[in-house]
Design a protein around this nucleic acid. Structure first.
Lengths: 297, 297
DNA sequence: CACTATTTGTCCGTATGTATG
DNA sequence: TCATACATACGGACAAATAGT
């Protein structure tokens, strides 16, 4: 039959098999061995915080006890307690002796998504409505990764710029761009902090034709975290994109990092009949980017 | 020329004016105080590591001296030394007395991406080439979030299934699906662990028409981490999708979690002329999902 | 009213790691 | 190298509030 490994389950009535035999001797949930030296209690705090925001404890808002966390994360009770105390100090939960820890946090009903209409990563529109701060601007030899993306020789000179983009004064994205040196020399650092890179390239005569991008996730290191006003060790959305001109020559390689609570990638799909079977097709006018109003913090 | 400052001060007000051309290293990190949890030496280590990877010291591979770092980051020499020792212990640099610290690092060959050709989130193809394990299968009242996604009344009965999908025996994705009860009753838990949910729905007569999905990032809690053989607190890519039939009625709400080192979302874009300005357009046949062979870790 | 189990609050001591001077 | 301070993390122990039997 179906084996249910429901450890943390939202409080539900019924169908509650009391202690279904499989008392997992797991005990080896590894925390934070991924190179980040974030304190244990803070890692647990981040996980719990996200679960709260996802409404995992929405029913009666009851969080696991300190003892539960002790067993599940393999830490001492003091450490588990500190994680919950940190939640309480931010007003996300209320802790009462002998009564447990309950969520006292109301997600603004609907996480209001104010759409920036237009196409996917509408850089120009975004650029006009936002501000950017230039953190770094330097010419350096291309690393292998950058060289491969831009299809140039490794070691060839490229321009690297690191910017933070703000929306309504709130840090929004962390951008690292690489441009072949010859192109980069055609604009200045000052222009780069005022205009989107893409519009600068088009002004330089580049006829932008296509782009390919990869979306993934990564952890915030302390440098990026500071830029985005986020916690080190929190999850970020990462988009890497190579932009090419009409001849297919790469003109820009960009890596963008976003706080997931302030930016999400949304798209619509249609189910169409393919050659052999039905498949998904991306709706053209529907792929767009949305900005979520920051709930708090 | 803008100074190389990959370091940012904290939300300090004012002083928006960088000292252009000034020799003053505008870079002491605002830390050491209470706000940051990451050790100083490790923060510096991360910054240096990234600079090395970007080829900042590519010429002769010479890193700043301990004294340089001491001044630049505003820390003691011991702390600067530890950061460089950490680099050395990882084999990134070589330290020689009175000779300084040099980069001895060759980036590994690019992580090979073996594409699974086909359309965006080609569920059926994936379902046929992978295995799935059913972790949970239960009927329960819809939470507010689920009810809103499926456009049903909060508390109406829905079927929830939690599965882990494996690719070549390696845990690949963690799927939580919600289906209206009436639809869910038409197939069994056993079928769900063998066939993709979408094909089961189509077998039941559902004429799948469209879907809208949101891509974001989140942290792995201990439960998901165990399922995906990852660390709790690591970053995961998260895709939430509402699938609708031809009439626009939601038939499925799914939340999928992926390890970023095993799954990435890739798409191609074209630059087309819009009504007012040029914009990006999603290439239809190019949006696809790729699986990356684990490069390391 | 005990009695018990939970759960949180508080305290102790100890060990290790971090950072400065 | 040493001394000092502070933060982190552990284990143990006890007390206090709450709920159920």
């Amino acid at each position: 039959m179906v084996q249910i490994a429901s450890i943390q389950r939202a409080p539900e009535m019924g169908s509650e098999t009391p202690h279904a035999g499989s008392n997992e001797p797991q005990s080896s949930i590894q925390l934070g061995s991924q190179g980040l030296k974030t304190p244990l209690y803070h890692q647990i705090y981040l996980i719990l915080k996200e679960q709260i925001k996802d409404g995992v404890y929405g029913a009666d808002g009851r969080l696991p006890s300190e003892q539960d966390l002790t067993e599940r994360f393999g830490v001492s009770r003091i450490t588990a307690k500190r994680a919950m105390d940190e939640l309480a100090s931010e007003g996300l939960v209320v802790r009462e002796r002998a009564r447990g820890t309950r969520v006292i946090y109301q997600p603004p009903s609907a996480p209001i998504a104010s759409s920036i209409e237009g196409m996917l990563e509408n850089l120009i529109a975004m650029g006009l409505e936002t501000t950017a701060k230039l953190l770094d601007f330097v010419y350096l030899p291309a690393s292998d990764t950058v060289a491969e993306a831009l299809e140039i020789e490794s070691g060839a000179e490229v321009q690297r710029a690191v910017r933070v983009r703000y929306l309504d004064g709130v840090p929004f994205s962390h951008l690292t761009t690489y441009v072949p040196s010859a192109l980069g020399r055609q604009f200045t650092a000052e222009e780069l902090s005022s205009f989107p890179l893409l519009s600068l390239l088009e002004r330089c005569g580049v006829d932008v034709g296509s782009a390919s991008q990869t979306i993934t996730a990564t952890l915030a290191d302390h440098v990026v975290a500071q830029c985005l006003d986020a916690d080190a060790g929190s999850a970020l959305m990462k988009i890497s994109r190579v932009v090419r001109d009409q001849t297919g020559t790469p003109v820009e390689f960009i890596t963008a990092l976003y706080r997931p609570d302030r930016y999400q990638y949304r798209m619509s799909l249609s189910r169409v009949q393919g050659e052999t079977a039905k498949r998904w097709s991306a709706d053209d006018n529907a792929a767009r980017t949305d900005t979520l109003k920051a709930a708090q913090t």
